[in-house]
Amino acid sequence: MKDAHHKGEGHQEGHGTVYKYGMVINLDKCTGCGACMVACMAENNIPFRKEDTNDRLTQNFWMRVYKISNGGSFPDNDICYLPRPCMHCEGHGHHNRTPCVTVCPAVATDYNHETGIVSQIYTRCFGCRYCMAACPYHVRVFNWWDPKWPEGMEEYLNPDVSPRMRGVVEKCSFCFHRLQRARNKAYSEDRREVHEDEYQTACTQACPAGAITFGDLTNPEHKVYELKKTPNAFRLLEVLGTNPKVYYTSSRAWVRKAADVYVGKEGSGVTHT
């Protein structure tokens, strides 16, 4: 990987910009409607089973909306919905490695240094589920069943996303196939860079409240660049040092606090445990 990475950097000039795609989710805007989950499932050919649509432990969601509460009683009770895609952790400090990537015994997943996207290759994965144990966000899910769609629905599958077989792990890919499609267009127009509006994830576009913003975190022209720097922005479990690329913003202090177990150290930077 190291060599490949170096080569990638060496060609930076030739291949244009290095991106770092990420998300900023405004929790104050999220109404918990679940449109992002539905859009994600439709876009990414996520199989579902009628009998356990309520079983959150075996049903696969790439995007999952959590409901959190401040625990107060009326009138102080407050709830917040928290959509959770894959964090596409970069890792930093002395880890400098995505938690799920280094553990994979067969290199079925990697961190792309050109896009910042953590991949998952279903045909390489043999289902040891070590990455699921490594991920603190429960992002990675396992195909406990053979995928099956209601009759006729196979015709409506997205041809850009390959359906998963049973016995492999899958997870949110930031709709990477949309980047591939956007790149195709860019290449045919003889440019290398992809514009912000050309590559947006399905959940971003589906959110009726506009709570999700997606773009290149390193590009000052992208909206996420400024949003992630607002004082109300935070990330989930920052203290672990996973360095996620999904940011959340909320004006409510209890929501920000709820993002980290290690409340005592909130805001004092990253500590490694």
């Binding site: 994979c104 067969a106 290199v107 390489r124 994965c125 043999f126 289902g127 040891c128 396992f142 195909n143």
Partner: peptide
């Protein structure tokens, strides 16, 4: 335990 036993050899062939 592994989900795709037929691919078990990947751990040796494509070792990380």
């Amino acid at each position: 335990d592994i989900g795709q036993p037929i691919r078990g050899w990947f751990i040796f062939w494509h070792a990380n």
